Structure formats: C-alpha cells, structure tokens
Amino acid sequence: MTTTARAQGATIWLTGLPSAGKTTIARLLGDRLKGGGLRTEVLDGDEIRRFLSAGLGFSKEDRDTNVRRIGLVSEVLARNGVLSVVPVIAPYAVSRAAVRERHQRNGVPYIEVHVATPVEVCSERDVKGLYARQAAGELSGLTGVDDPYEPPVDPDLVLRTQEQTPRQSADAVYALLVERGLV
C-alpha cells in the first residue's frame, strides 16, 4: 500500500511501567510501518513532556493533562491518515479511557497495547536510572513503585516483554494492525 493510497490513520497506544520497553517497541514498529510506505509518527512520551507539556509536574492532575494532550495530538494525526504510535506510561485508567472515548467519538481507530513487564524486570533494565534514583531516595513518585499504575483491564493486546524480544513484540503489534485492517 502506498502512502497516497492510505486514507485511514489510527492510534497505537503503548502503556506500561518505566523501562517496560514501550519506546523500543514503538520505534521498531514505526520503522516497519514507515518502511512499508505508511505515514507514521512515533509520539515519544518523554519528548512530548519536554515540549508540549513543559511545565507540568507529576501530580495526578498533571499526568492526566499530559495524557489527554498526547491523546489529542495522536487523534488529530490519525484523523489525517497517520498511524500514530504512542509509547507513554499513562498510569491512570481514567485518562486512558478519556483518550479512547475521544477517538471513538470521532470515528478514529484506537489500539491499546499493555506492555506488561513486571516491575522487577523494569527495575533491572532501568534504562533512565529512575529505579536506582528512587531506591537511593533521590526520587519519589515513581510509577509502579511509590506511585500507582493502573493496568488496562481490557487492552487490545498484552505484551510480556520478559518473554520475547523487542522485535517479536513489535511484530505482534503489527500482526494486530493487519488483523484489524489498519495496514
């Protein structure tokens, strides 16, 4: 399928704990989609927080605002034919539900993927050193440790990254997109 022939976008929302593998999977998936000629954007949660959500903290309200902002950007991209891949923690079910509902109201496909990596595995990976900083008392409010993470109740796909490679995880998401007729 060529980029010009593709009219429908979608949001592929990857949620999970810090260091679960969300961004790695999103980038692999994004590269595969782009390599197939599909209009694709990866909306990295860290980049969004630095620019679009600069000034927000990590209170429940600020996290909710951040998730809703990312959801809006993703939904607008998807409405305009872009496959928007969104790797974000998005710890609260109510925020994720609001994003899903907005997509549904506007007739935009939304796929929720739970990157269900256990906190012990995330702590070992500790890509950004957050778990080490929290253990040393230098950081509080770490999602999944001393701040809540509400796992999705009914995600479209669950990835157990401790049992498969990042490529296998990205392939599983791609297979779901094919199954849903989105690629």
Rank of each mutant, 00 (worst) to 15 (best):
E124H: 09
T161L: 13
R105G: 00
V99G: 03
Q162C: 03
D147I: 02
I111H: 01
P152G: 12
L159N: 04
A90D: 03
P109K: 06
P148E: 14
R125S: 05
G137Q: 05
Y131M: 11
L142P: 09
D126T: 08
Q134H: 14
Y92K: 11
V158Y: 01
E112L: 11
V99S: 02
R100N: 03
V121P: 05
H103C: 14
Y149Q: 14
D156L: 08
G144Q: 10
S123Q: 15
Q134T: 04
R96F: 02
I111M: 03
P91G: 08
E101W: 01
A116I: 06
P91R: 07
E120V: 08
G137H: 04
R125E: 04
S123W: 00
P166E: 05
P109S: 06
R96C: 08
V121Y: 02
G81L: 07
V121L: 06
Q104T: 09
R133Y: 01
V88F: 07
Y110E: 01
V88L: 12
P91C: 04
G107N: 11
L159H: 04
T161P: 02
A116F: 01
Y149R: 14
Q134R: 15
A90C: 10
D156C: 10
G107C: 04
A132F: 00
L130C: 13
R100S: 05
S140M: 01
